[in-house]
Amino acid sequence: MQRHDYLIIGGGMVAANAVNGIREHDDRGSIAILGAEPDGPVTRPALSKKLWTDPEFTYDRIWMSPEQDEHTTLYTDTRVESINRDEKTVTTASGEVHGYGRLLLATGGTVVTLDDLPAGDRVLYFRTVRDYDRLRELSGGQRHIVVVGGSYIGTEIAAALVQNDTRVTLIYPEEVLGSKMFPKSLASRFHQTYLDQGVRLLGGRSVDNGQVHGDSITLALDDGSTLEAEAVVFGLGVTPNVALAEQAGLEVDDGVVVNERLQTRDEAIFAAGDIARYPDRILGRQRIEHVDHANQSGTTVGHIMAGSQERYDHTPYFYSTVFDMAYKAVGALDSSLETVEDWATPQQQGVVYYLKDGRVKGVLQLNMDPDKLDKARAVLADTSPQSEETLKGRIGIA
């Protein structure tokens, strides 16, 4: 058995940031990362954004290097099967046992898949660097690729592909692309931008199943029609990997429940990133899957595991960039809520506030400087009733 001062289950961005956080307080404690994927941590957002659209952002820049010293070891292709809290050990699928002083659960999420269409060379459930590599091989040359999903990954991949000499069909459940998140006017612009860029939009549809035939795939849609393409890419979201925590008897509720120090009911076990259900100081208890949370919660939990007395008091933002639309947001983006729009130029630069019962629940900033995000957090933290009169002009747009 190998014993480590700090043991991290999960080899993603949270793990890499946690190592950095630990090393700010402890430069010699032994750290081991047990990652199930074949590769080490990468800056995952680049897989659907910058690697496709920024020629100066090269492939080598995606890799993170948590194994930064002789006291840190990264294990890839290593899946943990169980946690023994009494013995403070974990056991891997190959039977190896690792002991820990403090344990971090950073297991992330598993992509949602269709039962009747398993992943393969031409069926990608986009998540990993291997998925990016394969999609690069399949794209270009005006090949036809179908993208399924109208949320962050689906819209980003569709935009990335069409800007890289690929014919794209985007299938999504709502009639107007973006209408679940954006108010009507902004959703209309979002939708039209994809059409203007040459993306074929099939709204109100879903994929039932498909069949691969050599170098092509035939997809069967829910309306009885079929669609031929060279490949299909799914972006249907993820489910949090909480089975280990549940098996270990930790509290689980749509994620691993932690306190303001990202600590579970077991004082030696912590959770951060996608799986952590934590008490946000502004938004209340949340589980957030975006990169800012992975970075900030990873670093903070590293500090705490190494002895810091701090709390995780950051309210994360999330963002997406497609074509000429770069938006950042804090809180809930739900178009069923009341919205107040404050534009410098119509649907080009401005702020959208999302309200429920007079309280601001979310703030979206389109094509604005990131230094305005703290102002968005301040609006969310304000518990007084708000209206169009009190909100317009509150966050400077210029």
Rank of each mutant, 00 (worst) to 15 (best):
G10P: 12
N20C: 08
G10M: 11
A398M: 07
P240M: 11
E389I: 09
L103E: 04
P385A: 05
T72L: 10
M13T: 11
S336N: 14
T299P: 01
A272S: 06
N209K: 13
Q197E: 13
G140A: 01
G224L: 07
V176N: 05
L51P: 03
F126G: 05
K392S: 06
D115M: 11
H314I: 11
D196G: 10
A276S: 10
H98R: 06
K88L: 13
V360N: 09
A229G: 07
L366Y: 10
R205W: 04
L364R: 11
Q347C: 14
F57G: 13
R281K: 11
R277Y: 04
H4E: 14
K392Q: 02
D165C: 03
N259K: 12
T128S: 01
S206W: 06
R394N: 06
K180M: 14
I275L: 02
V97R: 07
E388K: 13
G249Y: 11
S82T: 03
D27F: 07
D371I: 05
D292H: 09
E310P: 08
Y312L: 03
L7G: 00
A159M: 03
D54F: 00
L117H: 05
L104S: 02
L244P: 12
T110A: 08
Y75N: 08
M64H: 12
Q142R: 15
Y100H: 03
Y75S: 07
V363G: 09
T43D: 04
V14C: 01
V14N: 04
R136V: 15
L103Q: 06
T218M: 06
S206P: 04
D357S: 14
L104W: 03
G224Q: 02
F323I: 10
H98E: 10
S225T: 11
Q349V: 04
L219A: 05
I9G: 10
K50V: 10
L201T: 09
D313N: 13
G141C: 07
V291T: 12
D86V: 13
I62S: 02
A268S: 14
D208V: 15
A326P: 03
H290N: 03
M1I: 04
I33C: 07
A306R: 07
Q247D: 12
N259T: 09
E56C: 00
E137I: 05
N295W: 11
H98L: 04
A119R: 08
G21P: 00
K88T: 04
G273M: 02
D27T: 14
M305Y: 08
F323E: 06
T226V: 09
V291K: 01
Q386E: 04
F57D: 10
P173C: 05
Y317E: 14
Q296I: 04
N20F: 13
L114Y: 08
G40A: 02
L244F: 04
D266Q: 01
D77E: 14
P240S: 14
T78I: 08
A36L: 05
T91Q: 05
D382N: 13
T321Y: 10
R44E: 01
G350N: 11
F126P: 10
T78L: 11
